[in-house]
Design a protein around this nucleic acid. Structure first.
Length: 411
RNA sequence: GCGGACGUAGCUCAGCUGGUAGAGCGCCAGGUUGUGGUCUUGGAUGUCGUGGGUUCGAGCCCCAUCGUUCGCCCCA
């Protein structure tokens, strides 16, 4: 037990955990491709300014959760806490603001120095879908619909609800923010300590509070609707309309707020009650100002990120590992022949393993434990006649098959 | 960062009011000649998370520390 363990908040992906994890990523990748998204990859670490600038200096992620350090050259480097800022930086760095829109699929590890919990790790993984450079509400609906399709393909949609909100444009948000500050300031005595701090930094977040007392105050808080500018209201209408065209069920929730500062207009979360405190499984929104923060032109964008670990936990059953065919040589001469058979099967795309330890009984046991669907038994007698014994391990049926026909028979 | 629970073989766990560790599963090897899944016999494995303390003696008591977990916070 004194052996080295993975660092706090990190974990190894092996066996079923690995199968769940990669099933989520592969499913998302496949569907995003069909929806017209191209996969990008950007560096795992970036100049600290990419995140400090992008995410906003009031967010907890920037203030106390980043893995930031000086590298050997003295530059301030940060392990990315999320993907979007790096994607926007890459858009600008590569001059792609000239060829918009860009539809991007992304997956990879992210890093946040948090207190670990189930569904919350210091190294965790996200899948992301972003449309860069598209100001139309149709883009919002398409991005959300793509996410919903992925959740359906994973079989978790039944446990998940789409909650939708608008944060309005900057004018709307500023007006609403002022109204909230007024309201909450008048109710300071009823607010929790946490919310008093939020009143200074990010009053919108109070709407999200789980504190019993806060909720009473929040119930009477102003809503954003009367503060929406005509443009912002029209935009939100468009998003809702297109979502129904995509046949995506959603509920409106005026308390949805995004954690990072770059969001405006559309905000949404796919939530579940199946994961305790980590209920948000996919979340995103519109961020029209982020590319400018990275030094590019004004570029309206919309996207979401989903936690791979959380989705993996929601999967009912992990996909079964592919069943191999076991090749079992009996005797020394047969080992050479077995290698030939392995080559042929694998070249034909058939997962195949050799079992060559112990007596035949052991080899069969191993084949069975490996989950093999069939065993190919090769002895001197068979080799001399150019055949093999092919045994179906599920039915127990065994028959003699010509070596040349094995691959076709098993394909 | 705050509060609660937990930490014993690879895994799941048991261990009575303190007397130097057990089960099931798994693993390894057998049950005679080239055939698995059932059955059966035998075997290996733990510095009882770590470090201190109390005691004649601690897996069981106390303290600290690390880790996991639940809630808060935050967020995917």
């Amino acid at each position: 037990m004194s052996a080295l363990q993975p660092a706090r908040g990190t974990r190894d992906l092996i066996g079923e955990d690995a199968r769940r994890h990669f099933h989520v990523i592969e499913t998302a990748r496949r569907i995003a491709a069909v929806w017209g998204f191209d996969e990008w990859a950007t560096p795992v670490f970036e100049d600290t300014r990419v995140f400090a600038r992008g995410l906003g200096d009031t967010s907890d992620v920037v203030m106390k959760e980043m893995y930031t350090f000086a590298d050997r050259g003295g530059d301030s480097i940060t392990l990315r806490p999320e993907a979007t800022a790096g994607i926007c930086r890459a858009l600008v760095s590569n001059g792609l603001t000239q060829t918009l829109p860009q539809k991007v699929f992304y997956t990879g590890p992210m890093f946040r120095y948090e207190r670990p919990q189930k569904g919350r790790y210091r190294q965790f993984h996200q899948i992301d879908v972003e449309v860069l450079g598209s100001p139309e509400p149709l883009a919002d609906a398409e991005v959300i619909a793509c996410g919903w399709t992925i959740l359906q393909a994973l079989g978790v949609a039944k446990d998940v609800t789409l909650e939708l909100n608008t944060l309005g444009d900057k004018a709307s948000r500023d007006a609403y923010r002022a109204a909230l500050v007024d309201y909450f300031s008048a109710h300071k005595s009823s607010l929790s300590e946490d919310s008093l701090a939020r009143l200074e930094r990010n009053p919108l977040r109070i709407l999200d509070s789980k504190d019993e007392g806060d909720r009473h105050v929040v119930a009477g808080a102003p809503v954003i609707d009367p503060h929406l500018t005509p443009d912002a209201a029209r935009f939100y209408d468009g998003v809702r309309r297109h979502l129904t065209h995509f046949s995506i069920p959603f509920v409106e929730n005026r308390r949805i707020v995004r954690g990072l500062d770059y969001y405006s207009h559309t905000a949404f979360e796919f939530v579940t009650s199946a994961l305790g405190a980590q209920g948000t499984v996919m979340g995103g929104g519109r961020y029209d100002g982020l590319v400018e923060e990275m030094g590019g032109p004004h570029t309206p964008c919309i996207g979401w990120a989903a936690g791979v670990e959380r989705l993996a936990m929601l999967l009912a059953a992990p996909p079964a590992p592919p069943a191999p065919v076991a090749v079992i040589p009996v005797g020394e001469a047969a080992e050479a022949a077995a290698i030939g058979v392995l080559q042929v099967l694998r070249a034909a795309g058939i997962r195949a393993e050799a079992e060559y330890r112990g007596n035949l009984k052991r080899r069969m046991e191993r084949a069975n434990r490996a989950g093999a669907r069939a065993a190919i038994i090769l002895g001197d007698d068979e080799i001399a006649r150019g055949v093999a014994q092919l045994k179906n391990l599920a039915s127990g049926m065994q028959s003699e098959v010509k070596l040349a026909e094995l691959a076709a028979k098993l394909g």
